[in-house]
Amino acid sequence: MVTGKRKFNGVPYLFILPHLIFFIVFVGYPFFNGLYISFFNYDYLRPQATTFVGLQNYLDLFRPGSVKYYEFWNSMRVTLVFVVSSVPFLILIPLGLATLLNTKLPGTHVFRAIYFAPWVLSCAVISLIWWWIFQSQGGLLNYYLGALGLPTPRWLSTMPYAMITIVVATVWWTMGYNMIIFLAAMQDIPADLYEAGRVDGANAWQRFIYITLPLLRPVLVLIIITTIIASFNLLGQPMMMTRGDPRLPNGGGATEPVMLRIFIEGFVRPYQGSAAAMSVIVALIMMAFSLVNFRLFRHQE
């Protein structure tokens, strides 16, 4: 393997080049081209009409009072609301499920497989299912709520219910993923630690608080970061369940996250330059967030 120290050996490049070519065209080049496009008034259907506008696409997003400003920052607010209201459930429920399954009881692997199952479905499938469950007419949920004499709100078209439907669908869909990671980390904790805890008279709750949680911390931090980023990318569920509705008086929708806004701006409307500028801002925020967390996390280690 130590050949080619003196003379040039092309063979290794034959191994990496096929992938590298695609990487350069679809990761390396767009890294810069996205920024470049954001300085233009660009519509892919009419490339001849492209005009250089400098920072205009960005200025539009920071000029209070304009529709674009309102729509964009509203979608950022909606994204934040979704992150804040979904992430706690996406951490605590999987943590609870993993704890429940982290026993030697027979049959737990069957439950593990069932709890994880929704994750293999596509966003379109789960959105369609929950959209139907939450329907006011014929919907499963309101049928049972009505039968129990409880209020039956118009889930998909009024607030805060529309946001709740998206959170519920998302939690049901993805909780199994974090559960599996928690479970794998829990199973790495040596059993004699629990044995020692038991000998010292710690009950199940105390063992969880004083043994499981501290040892789970690195994984916990990692999962919180990845879950926040995943929630930031919300798109398909509101697209198919609420269409971003209910509409807001100044434009934009109460369940229209920033990814849906970028989709509308660049692919429903013909403003790809503006959509590229929005993407740059969102990407910067996400990168800053990851970096800060990474630093904090590393510092504490």
Binding site: V27, N33, A283, M287
Partner: peptide
């Protein structure tokens, strides 16, 4: 090179949406 490849794993997918669409078009 591998370090560079790994670093891109941390880039948010949203920034590739518009430019890759343009390339594909």
């Amino acid at each position: 090179l591998f370090g560079l490849l790994l670093a891109t794993l941390f880039l948010p997918g949203v920034m590739f949406l518009v430019p890759n669409f343009v390339t594909v078009a």
